[in-house]
Design a protein around this nucleic acid. Sequence first.
DNA 1: TAGATTGTTAATCGATTAACAATC
DNA 2: TAGATTGTTAATCGATTAACAATC
Lengths: 224, 224
Amino acid sequence: MSKSKRIDGNKKTKENIIPEPSLRRLPWYLSYAKVMYEQGKDQISSTQIAKGVDIDSALVAKDLSHIDLQGRTRVGYKTKQFIDVLERFLGFTNSHKSFVVGVGNLGSALMNDKGLKQFGLEVEAGFDVSETLIGTEVAGLMVYNIDTLKSFVKKHNITIAILTVPAKYAQSTSDFLVECGVKTIWNFTTVRIRVPNNIVVQNTCLYAHLAVMFTRIKEINGDV
Amino acid sequence: MSKSKRIDGNKKTKENIIPEPSLRRLPWYLSYAKVMYEQGKDQISSTQIAKGVDIDSALVAKDLSHIDLQGRTRVGYKTKQFIDVLERFLGFTNSHKSFVVGVGNLGSALMNDKGLKQFGLEVEAGFDVSETLIGTEVAGLMVYNIDTLKSFVKKHNITIAILTVPAKYAQSTSDFLVECGVKTIWNFTTVRIRVPNNIVVQNTCLYAHLAVMFTRIKEINGDV
DNA sequence: TAGATTGTTAATCGATTAACAATC
DNA sequence: TAGATTGTTAATCGATTAACAATC
């Protein structure tokens, strides 16, 4: 359904799977298109996008080829349509329900963040072990006892968990989440969790980016 | 200094540069080692780490070969030493000073986050354009008028900026930061900013991870 | 010695880049 | 038509995996 061109019979289903590097770049193209649209540009070309986001134009073209999107030679894409198709493709137009596990610093920040909703993720509740937090509200959302998580998942059929517990509890909490029927874990802990291979995990450790940043700085400054 | 083995004269400086994928994995090994250390394990092997973080052991070994770290055959590494060396290598033991530009939702969350300090990043102030924010304190840090940024950078010699402004101002603010003497930008906006090539940029758009997550979910559920 | 480990070298795989055909 | 663009196919590059030598 989402695959664009004809498919050779012998090619496996891998054909449909868009590579992760491409997938990571698509939101940049979308973001650029949105900014252009706000500035009144009705048409947008892949070469223009390439310049705007500083990525090789052939790569942009290749990335976009994974999407069911028809560009017009010499003209490019209609900005509005480009945005709509890309947003739908990336799942940003859906409403994916989720809950936060571990209502600490980062957990409550995510519960407060309004941006998530605009990108298709709706946080419905928080879970914690702390007696002082349980029963309180954060950003208008209830914080429940983690012991009630399994029945919550069953009842509301919410299968995306946002994991923001301390590192030492990351793996055990992850195991517990899987046991409760969670299918997708957005992992913000510093630990790389192990899960059965039918579970989708997205590791988003902010601090890991610092490692890359500091190392690049060190390289430029001649390893002082 | 940080390179481990002998170097062939003809190999370029690229030899020293650790590839980004490796750099991204190192914090996972560190985190795993820390958890093990807390559990009282004095020795740790790369094969053990490989199992713990679910990454091929040869890959772990190769990643670690970039670091000046001596393992002992049949035994592995001393956990404490492993942690120390890796933390130093990744720059987590230094204190890198920085400031937040755009004290909104995400910006103030980062100003509040205590984790950053543990990983070597110290936030010293916030900057914004909003009259209602300027002059207030967030997490004990002053919020200044963005017009005063240039003199602030000069005076305190703080060259790392955390960019958390709305998407439409991302590129122009980035240009302004470079003009003010900023050398490193941690970019949390949805926009991929363009900078001169002596400037280090780390793009950390949380929402991009949602794209990967949603697409993987879609693939598993058969593209409904 | 046998076995477990580090850590290197060669083979494979996949992503990016380059070249170019097709289109308007 | 000439030129700008989409979008594909082939060549290159780099990262991962596999095989294995060295060590204790």
